[in-house]
């Protein structure tokens, strides 16, 4: 039982990072109908920006976080121009291919400037740990779930109660009608991309103290995020939040009780099953409305 709780906690930590990446991905898909394959690179660049700020420039963590957010916003701005504005009136498969191109370009830009070797963010936090009953978590890990809760909670509140949030949701429902109601599409698109990039960047930043970051780390991350997005129901942020935690826990349990080799496989099996038997996702769209 004690071990079970420890696995659960590990799953929640990893799951929280999935949530951060996937919520942005699902927003970009749900609102702008862009299938963004370069989303993993937002995560990767967040990690590198954080490591550079905190290690190379010796900035304190909050300042590093601000750097990560700034870099992510810039990325989001650029990605929106390329993948949304640049591809107006094209089908969604175009965005898949263009974002694949962007992903390759970003990966190799980092490869050329930073080199291929993996990096880990070192902080004095790494020497602290938190014990909750039988569960033992080093501080960099323990911080991730509460940070995720705060960020995603703030995001949902903003979506619900601010004018901008309502614009975003209106766009997701129907672009033309939203436009007629005075929603500025361009502005919404830029904000959506910036939000998505920042969420992923912050995830990458926090996870860089737990797992190594390397130029190709985004490949697996983006696939995991797509798994989460599909299981949660494409375009549903709340579904993505639930599915992200679920996937983290399922992976952790699979690796603990079955075999570590199946850890990455189980999610894809789940996706195929979901798409075949419940294409609207486990948590469907209805959740979003309620």
């Amino acid at each position: 039982m004690d071990l079970f709780l420890q696995y659960l906690a590990n799953g929640v930590v990893v799951g929280s990072s999935y949530v951060l990446v996937a919520v942005g991905l699902t927003l970009i898909f749900g609102i702008l109908h862009v299938v963004n394959f370069a989303h993993g690179e937002f995560y990767m660049l967040g990690g590198y920006a954080g490591i550079t700020a905190s290690t190379a420039f010796g900035l304190p963590l909050p300042a590093s976080l601000a750097v990560v957010a700034a870099v992510s916003c810039l990325l989001g701005l650029g990605a929106e121009a390329l993948l949304h504005r640049g591809l107006k009136n094209q089908d969604q498969t175009s965005s898949i291919i263009a974002s694949f191109g962007l992903a390759v370009a970003l990966q190799n830009a980092v490869m050329v400037t930073m080199g291929p070797q993996p990096e880990l963010m070192h902080t004095e936090l790494a020497y602290k740990a938190i014990e909750l009953g039988p569960v033992f978590l080093p501080a960099p890990r323990a911080l991730i779930p509460p940070a995720m809760l705060i960020i995603v909670g703030a995001l949902f509140a903003a979506l619900r109660w601010t004018w901008t949030g309502r614009s975003l949701r209106a766009m997701a429902q129907h672009e033309t009608v939203a436009r007629l109601c005075g929603v500025k599409v361009r502005r919404v698109a830029v904000i959506t991309f910036m939000l998505g990039a920042t969420l992923a960047g912050v995830a990458g930043f926090m996870m860089s103290a737990v797992y190594m970051v390397h130029p190709l780390v985004g490949n697996m991350i983006v696939l995991k995020a797509f798994i989460v997005v599909i299981i949660g129901g494409m375009g549903s942020p709340l579904g993505a939040a639930a599915a992200g935690l679920l996937l983290g826990v399922i992976e952790s349990m699979t690796s603990a009780y079955l075999t570590n080799g199946l850890r990455d496989v189980v999610g894809f099996l789940l996706v195929i099953a979901v798409l075949l038997f419940r294409p609207q996702g486990l948590f469907g769209r209805s959740l979003e409305r309620s």
């Binding site: 640049g86 175009s94 191109g101 370009a105 990966q107």
Partner: peptide, 20 residues
């Protein structure tokens, strides 16, 4: 050659944008 894949990625984005 170092920038081979970087150039490839950029080219791809440009191609899809200009002539889908």
């Amino acid at each position: 050659a170092r920038y081979k894949m970087l150039i490839f990625g950029v080219l791809l984005v440009v191609c899809v944008t200009v002539a889908p």
